[in-house]
Amino acid sequence: MPGWRVPRSGRILQAMLAAQIALAGLIVFGDFRRIAPDLWRANSTPPAAVPVRPGDQTRRYAPRDLPRDQPAGPGFPRSDEVPQRLQFTETQVSGLKTVLLEGAIEPGDSARLAQYLDQRRSAPEQIALHSPGGSVTDALEIGRMIRAGGWPTVMQAGAACFSSCPYILAAGTDRRVSRTALVGVHQHYFGENTLLPAFLAVESIQHGQGEVLDYLDSMGIDLRLSAKAMQTPPANIYILVEEELTGFALATEMVE
């Protein structure tokens, strides 16, 4: 009928359906990246390390890759290639007995870390990080473990902490971040099996995001951090500048 318009409620439902279809497409794309990581990596490059300045902070995110052009600080035994799952290395940072968590965060890594810490003769004095991220569930479990242990977290010169890794950084009782370290966030996928109908996928993501918000709040982190993550697509990474690291309380101290 000429002049007939779709009711406002209908337009809202159409918009919601379109958003769910788009989200489902992103999820399937994410599954393809996970199923064929070698093909994905062959056509991607690590995010540029510098320059990063306010308003120019979004970089390409390449899973399992980290920038290597930043010189490593003393006591930072960074591997030539990023480990495919977390590895635990004992080192000394600023005279403190430190365990470096390096590599991608894979399902089951939180249990592996708990076993590693149980088998140590003495507890570490702090936890260092260098990771492109990975399993959100494991990152949150590791974070809770660190907070329960009362350990500080540290980002050394030349280190990077992307995707779910900042949730581990957030758990430190003190959080020292080098001004040459890189900390970045973006949107996450939640759950192992994401080949789901769109409405179920949306429900899973909303549940997972709610858990992240509760976690950050319990760690004393400004929830504006999560807003930056949700505004950044999974294929990109938003690198936080010093004012954001301290303003969001993700860093309690910036060091050289």
Rank of each mutant, 00 (worst) to 15 (best):
R59M: 04
P233V: 14
K97W: 06
F76E: 00
F162R: 01
P77A: 13
P152R: 10
L196M: 10
Q187F: 03
L86T: 04
T173D: 01
Y116R: 06
C165R: 01
R121M: 15
V93I: 13
G210A: 15
E106D: 13
D109C: 08
H130A: 07
G172L: 01
W4Q: 12
P74S: 05
G10L: 07
V202F: 13
Q115H: 03
T153M: 02
V154Y: 08
T137Q: 10
D80N: 15
P7E: 10
V183Y: 03
I221T: 01
R175L: 06
V52D: 00
Q231D: 15
S135T: 07
M219Q: 15
N193D: 12
F76Y: 02
S79Y: 06
V52I: 11
L250S: 15
G133S: 06
E242V: 06
R11L: 10
P7A: 15
S131H: 05
A48E: 11
A128P: 04
E253W: 06
L13T: 11
Y215G: 02
D65H: 12
I146N: 01
A160F: 00
R85N: 10
G149N: 10
G103I: 02
E81A: 14
A157H: 01
L140M: 08
A171F: 02
L240K: 00
E244K: 07
L213F: 03
D65Y: 08
N193V: 04
P132L: 14
G95V: 11
D217C: 05
I239M: 05
D80S: 12
Y189K: 11
D56M: 11
Y167E: 12
G75M: 02
S218P: 10
G210E: 13
V6P: 03
P107V: 05
C161P: 01
A111G: 07
N236V: 12
E243N: 02
Y167L: 12
G108M: 02
P2S: 14
Q206R: 15
D217N: 06
R11A: 09
Q209K: 08
G103A: 07
V212S: 09
T180P: 01
G149W: 10
D222A: 13
W4D: 13
R68M: 07
P83Q: 10
M230R: 10
T252M: 07
R85A: 12
A15N: 12
I205L: 14
G134H: 07
T194M: 15
W151I: 09
P67D: 09
M155K: 04
R41E: 08
I146M: 06
